[in-house]
Simulated assay, not measured.
Amino acid sequence: MMRRTLPAGLRPALRQAAEAPAQQPLFIIWRTGFQRRVASMDQMLGFEVRYLTPPFAATWLKPLGYLVQAFRTARIVLARRPAVVWVQSPPSFLPHLLLALRPLAGGFRVVADCHHRVFEPPWSRVPGMVRALNRCDVVLVHNEESRPQAEALGVIPAKLRVLEDPPPTLDLPDPARPPAPEANAGADAGAGPYVLTPCSFADDEPIPVLLAAARLVPEARFLVTGSRRKAAGLGFLRDVPGNVTFTDYLPIPEFERLLGGAAAVLGLTDAEGVQLSVANEALGAHRALVLSDTRILRAMFGAAALFAANTPEDLAARLREALARRPELEAASAALKARRQRDWRVAAAAATALLD
């Protein structure tokens, strides 16, 4: 009769399992560094958060990188022997991995935290994706627009819960302190009102519209965070207005310092179903907020934000309005933050009740 054996590298982790039980839920994320959704939920629920950075930058090495990340995940889970594991998806094969590890680590519960891209190609085409989600104890989607997508693919409705991003509670540094010049690429937060615009330079972000709108609002400066290398590669640095600075990635304390001093925060997307992390960050910092006009953003942030069509003229008009109504909009953001945090605790309690 054949015996099932673990790879030698996993055996020490399995021996440690009985000696080091995890008291907090474990949260596994296959990405680099920091994610605001996870950090904000950690403030509310308390996790042992593990970011597993992709080991290779080259796209063609991703499959090998996934194997490395899978091995690291297995070591962590077998060593910690948690009662509950939360796993962020995509990759949409991560629930498969956790379910395979479950009988080896004490039968932990699995919470699949699913971004809307899980339910769209290519991630929705991973073999056995829906079956794996239906074997999880809880399947979370990030907004109401994702629920029907999940159900249409066959995810069991009784296991589905909507858990939006909660606004963070921020311990903001003093905005009067000048930024570190090397981190901020010459932007001076003390030189007048500025609009903070966090970007990933994804396909849904209309950066040319932002640059054209900035030309129409010369009285404000625009600090655009995110990878300068990516922005340059997409051609966004070729003709930059004088009042726009691409800051590059910033350390979290530096970003939060700029967030706390912004006259307004701007979030842009031309895609429906996207809830922008920057919107909750603006609430957390009690900042005036301007967002692209989409159904989901209006539903989530309509009590505090101003909404603009993705045209230079309308965006410029809403930004000027935000600067003029800054105290009123800052108070609205603070009020909506408190309400959304209360509502989030209720939604989280309903989701985690499925684990009982």
Rank of each mutant, 00 (worst) to 15 (best):
R3Q: 12
R4S: 12
P7T: 11
A8Y: 10
R11M: 10
R11H: 08
R11C: 07
Q16H: 10
P21K: 06
A22I: 03
Q23V: 13
F27A: 08
Q35M: 12
S40R: 01
M41A: 03
R50M: 06
Y51M: 10
L52K: 02
T53K: 04
W60N: 09
L61Q: 15
P63S: 10
P63Y: 11
L64N: 09
Y66F: 12
F71K: 07
T73N: 04
A74L: 05
R75D: 04
A79G: 14
R80M: 09
Q88Y: 12
S89D: 02
S89K: 01
P91Q: 02
F93Q: 09
L94E: 01
H96F: 02
H96Y: 07
L98E: 03
L98Q: 03
L101Y: 12
A105D: 07
G106N: 04
G106D: 09
R109E: 07
D113L: 00
D113P: 00
H116V: 07
F119K: 01
P122M: 04
S124W: 02
V130E: 09
D137E: 14
N143Y: 00
A150S: 05
E151V: 08
V155F: 11
I156A: 15
L163S: 00
E164C: 07
P167V: 00
D171S: 10
D171K: 04
L172D: 08
P175F: 14
R177N: 13
P178S: 10
P178H: 11
P178V: 09
A180Y: 14
N184Y: 15
A185S: 14
A187K: 02
D188K: 08
G192W: 12
F201A: 02
L210T: 00
L216T: 01
V217L: 07
L223Y: 15
L223P: 00
V224A: 06
S227H: 06
R229C: 00
A232K: 03
G242M: 07
G242P: 01
P251G: 09
E256R: 14
L259F: 06
G267K: 08
D270V: 11
A271T: 07
G273Q: 05
V274T: 08
L276K: 11
S277C: 15
V278M: 11
N280G: 14
A282T: 06
H286L: 00
L291W: 04
T294I: 02
R295Y: 12
R295W: 13
I296W: 00
A299G: 13
F301V: 01
G302E: 03
A304H: 02
A305N: 01
F307G: 02
A309M: 03
P312Y: 06
E313R: 15
L315H: 05
R318Y: 08
L323W: 12
R325H: 13
A335C: 03
K337V: 06
Q341H: 11
A349H: 09
T352N: 03
L354P: 06
L355W: 11
